[in-house]
Amino acid sequence: MPVIAHVLDSVTELRRDVPGAEWRVHMDDLDVPWDEAEGYVLPGMRDADLIAELAAVMDEVAE
């Protein structure tokens, strides 16, 4: 999730720095929505509890 957040934050900055361009952001078959206040975000992307839970699952899988 941290990598996805970093990429979407970067694309958000780029979109804001290049006004007037037409943008579409997709991940696999999913359209990533644009939000004027937050930029490109996915549900739960900034939820600390969800991120911790996903990290715990990944740690279990790595063992």
Rank of each mutant, 00 (worst) to 15 (best):
V25R: 00
A37Q: 13
E63I: 01
D29N: 12
G39W: 07
G39C: 06
V18G: 02
E63A: 15
V11H: 00
V41W: 08
E60D: 14
L30I: 15
Y40Q: 03
D28G: 14
P19I: 02
I51Y: 03
V57T: 14
V61M: 09
V57Y: 09
R46G: 01
E63D: 14
P33H: 04
V57K: 09
T12C: 01
H26K: 11
D9N: 15
Y40R: 00
R15M: 02
E13Q: 11
D59V: 07
W23D: 04
V61K: 04
D49V: 09
A62R: 12
T12Y: 01
E38C: 10
P33K: 09
D29P: 08
I51D: 08
A5D: 13
R46C: 02
E53Y: 08
Y40S: 01
M1P: 11
T12Q: 01
A62D: 11
L30K: 12
L8W: 02
E22W: 08
G39L: 03
R46M: 02
A37Y: 04
R24M: 12
A21K: 14
A5H: 13
A48F: 09
H26P: 02
V3E: 01
P19V: 00
A21D: 05
M1W: 09
E53W: 07
I4N: 01
H6G: 10
V32C: 03
E38I: 00
H6T: 15
D17A: 15
I4L: 15
M1E: 08
E53K: 11
H26R: 13
L8G: 04
A37H: 13
D9R: 15
L54D: 07
T12W: 00
A37N: 13
E53V: 05
T12H: 03
E36V: 13
P33T: 10
L8P: 04
H26G: 01
I51R: 15
R24V: 12
A37T: 14
D29I: 10
V25I: 13
H26E: 14
R15S: 07
E36N: 11
E36A: 15
R16W: 06
A48I: 03
P33Y: 06
E13D: 13
A21N: 03
P43F: 05
G44I: 04
R46T: 09
V18K: 01
V3Q: 05
A62N: 09
W23F: 14
V18I: 12
E63C: 09
L42G: 01
V25A: 04
A5G: 10
Y40E: 02
L42T: 06
P2C: 00
D49R: 11
E22D: 08
H26C: 14
E36W: 05
Y40A: 05
E38W: 12
E60L: 11
V18S: 02
A56V: 02
T12P: 06
P19Q: 00
D47A: 07
V11C: 00
V7S: 00
D35T: 08
P19A: 00
D31E: 14
D35G: 02
V3P: 07
A48C: 00
L14P: 05
W34N: 09
L50N: 08
V11F: 02
P43W: 02
A21E: 10
T12E: 04
L8Q: 07
D28K: 04
H6F: 08
V57P: 01
A37R: 14
E53N: 06
H26Q: 14
G44P: 04
A52C: 07
I51Q: 13
R46H: 15
G20R: 06
G39Y: 01
D28H: 09
D49H: 10
G39F: 03
V61W: 10
L54F: 11
P33D: 08
E63L: 11
